[in-house]
Simulated scan of single mutants.
Amino acid sequence: MGAIVNCVAYRQGKRLGTVSMEEIRTVLAVPGTFVWLGLHEPELALLRQAQQAFGLHDLAVEDATNAHQRPKLEAYGDSVFVVLNTAQLVEDEVVVGETHLFVGPNYVVSVRHGASSTYAPVRERCENDPHGLANGPGYVLYALMDFVVDHYLPIVTRLEDTFEALEQNIFRDEFDRAAIERLYQIKRQVLRLRNAVSPVEDMCGQLIRLHEEVVPKELRAYFRDIEDHASRLVRTLDVVREMLTTAVQVNLALVTVGQNEVVKRLAGWGAILAIPTVVFSLYGMNFDFMPELKVHYAYPAVIGVTALACGALWRRLHRAGWI
């Protein structure tokens, strides 16, 4: 039973007090009362007990037991089952956890798995807003989803800052393996976070349009606000992902251009050296008749002509930017 974080009954926006698992059915029988049960990595036996107390669906309980679910929203009669991915930064690494929410007309069961902040601040926020809490379990669902989405923003900001710090090492004409590996790690974290945020948009849309029994008209604006926040986060993550891809491509392009410049210089010097190589190689052949060998100034003349030819070629290549 250590997995029970809190189990509190509410009526007309006011806290009535803590209730035990055995008292839940009795409390729920009173009109206008709902119970919010908070669990942290519960065992199957505890989930089965909660299932009996609230009438939870077998498939939803099975998902909450196994965890490792994708973000989704499932409807079971007049109740909904919501799976959210929570995210935290642990040593500059995005660690994803899960929150499972069972929401019915008179109950909310929140189940936390893995990396996730405590929902005590959410409960305190709800209890400090009796007007909102008077809307019932739908307001608690809003507060929990809003809390999860708000915690995505600092992580997105941190990823953006990390990328900006790496930019100066990327836009150079030399290959930096460590920087490229770090960029790949950031991109992987961006994708992981995007997969957590993106489904929230669709879930809010479904809750607004299809589940009036959970989300009354008074709360639709609240869920549209969450939808807007999630949409902006998705767009920001898409921009960061595109910038990461472009940065890697630009770095590789700069490295390629730099290598091409080296090849051009080597080719230029190879062309210059080819002139004396051809001229001097002639003197290594066994010709019977080489008249210039008997001319007094033949050797310095050949050296001078070769030097002039090399100089002319060097000047031409230098003007062309090859040397």
Rank of each mutant, 00 (worst) to 15 (best):
A3F: 00
A3C: 13
I4C: 08
I4K: 10
C7N: 10
G13I: 09
R15I: 09
T18P: 09
E22D: 02
E23P: 13
T26P: 04
V27L: 10
V27P: 06
A29H: 13
T33V: 13
T33S: 12
W36R: 11
E43M: 14
L44M: 08
Q49V: 14
Q49L: 11
A50T: 04
A50C: 11
Q51P: 00
A53Q: 02
G55D: 01
H57Y: 03
D58V: 03
L59V: 04
A60W: 00
A64C: 13
T65L: 01
R70T: 07
K72H: 08
E74R: 10
E74Y: 08
G77Y: 04
S79C: 05
F81V: 03
F81N: 01
V83C: 09
V83F: 05
V83N: 07
L84W: 05
T86L: 06
V90D: 14
V90P: 08
V96R: 12
H100Q: 05
P105L: 07
A115S: 06
A115P: 00
S117N: 12
C126G: 13
N128W: 07
D129L: 09
N135T: 12
G136P: 00
Y139C: 14
Y142R: 04
Y142H: 05
A143N: 10
A143C: 12
V148E: 00
L153Y: 07
D161N: 11
F163L: 06
Q168A: 14
I170V: 10
Q185T: 10
K187H: 05
Q189C: 05
V190F: 03
V190K: 05
N195R: 12
V200R: 08
E201G: 11
R209F: 10
V214Y: 00
L219Q: 10
A221G: 14
Y222K: 01
D225A: 06
R232C: 04
L233C: 10
L233W: 02
V234T: 06
T236C: 08
L237A: 01
L237N: 10
D238M: 09
E242D: 15
T245M: 13
T246D: 09
A247W: 07
V248G: 07
V250R: 11
V255E: 05
T256L: 06
T256G: 11
V257D: 11
Q259F: 05
R265M: 10
R265S: 02
R265W: 00
L266Q: 04
A271W: 01
I272W: 07
A274K: 02
F280C: 15
G284R: 02
P291G: 09
P291V: 07
K294I: 10
K294L: 11
Y299P: 08
T306Y: 03
L308I: 03
L308S: 15
A309S: 07
C310F: 03
R316Q: 11
R316C: 13
R316P: 03
L317P: 00
R319S: 02
